[in-house]
Simulated scan of single mutants.
Amino acid sequence: MNPKQVVDKKLKKGETGAAESNSGIIIQKWKDKRDVLTLSTKHTDELLIIRSGNNIELQKPAAVVDYNKHKAYIDLSDQMKSYATSLRRGVKWYRKLAIELLIGSALVNAHVLHQEVANEKMSITKFKQEIVNRLLGFDVDQHTHSIFEDHQHSLEDVGTNNRRRCAFCYEKLQRESGRAHAQRKTPRTKLKCTSCEKYFCIECFFQVHKRTK
């Protein structure tokens, strides 16, 4: 429980008060525009002199200075995750969490490592596209091709209101379980092959139009 002599202490702007527990945890209260409470096992209650944007000297607790310094990396990570995000609306929160961790945080970390190791500057969006290409087994020049192109065949998004059954899924289900079952179970897609004039899921499109390397 936080000590009342620190939490309830009345301070003027720039003043501070602190206490340390038997286990080495320091609670510190500092008055800025409003009261700021910090808990730390790393910092003391010392005040550091820093310069503001107006070149004015200010005193701030070491814990606050450290926090302000490192939170910028969190903000940058969140910003990079927002580019070409894979998050979509849904009622199952754990799916969003998994996507956020795998396709969000993990890819941002991988992007940073790639730039450090390969000494190559690359946007996070292009990096994600490269990951998709490698997972699908493609070696595509991103400047001249789309990952959805396959020689004369390419996918066109015709919009949600024009969805049709995936031709490949329908054929497979009809062959296995009959026409009635295929009509009920075939997933609908908004992606249409501009050459075949047929609708396909992304996976089925690449399976039907396999690349020749």
Rank of each mutant, 00 (worst) to 15 (best):
W93R: 12
M122P: 02
N133M: 09
F127W: 01
G137T: 02
G104F: 00
N109G: 03
T125P: 03
L101D: 06
E46D: 13
V117T: 10
L76W: 07
G90A: 05
N55C: 13
K96Q: 11
Q115G: 15
K96L: 13
L87D: 04
E57Y: 07
N109W: 07
L136A: 08
Q59V: 07
V117M: 11
D45E: 09
L47D: 01
E116H: 10
I50W: 13
E57C: 09
I103F: 15
E130M: 06
N119W: 04
H114T: 05
R88L: 05
H70L: 12
N133L: 12
E57N: 06
K121M: 06
D66R: 06
W93C: 10
I103R: 08
A98L: 14
N68K: 09
Q142K: 05
S52P: 02
Y83M: 06
N133Y: 01
A72F: 13
H70S: 11
I49F: 07
E120R: 03
V140W: 00
V117N: 09
H114I: 03
M80Y: 04
P61A: 00
N68W: 07
T44H: 15
V91A: 10
D66S: 14
K128G: 03
K81F: 04
K69A: 13
A63P: 11
T85I: 04
V108W: 00
L135T: 03
K96P: 00
S77A: 14
E46M: 11
D141G: 04
E130F: 01
D78C: 08
Q59C: 05
A110L: 11
H114G: 03
D78Q: 09
M80P: 00
N68F: 10
G53C: 12
K121H: 11
K121V: 08
N119L: 13
R89S: 04
Q59I: 06
L97V: 14
W93V: 08
K121I: 08
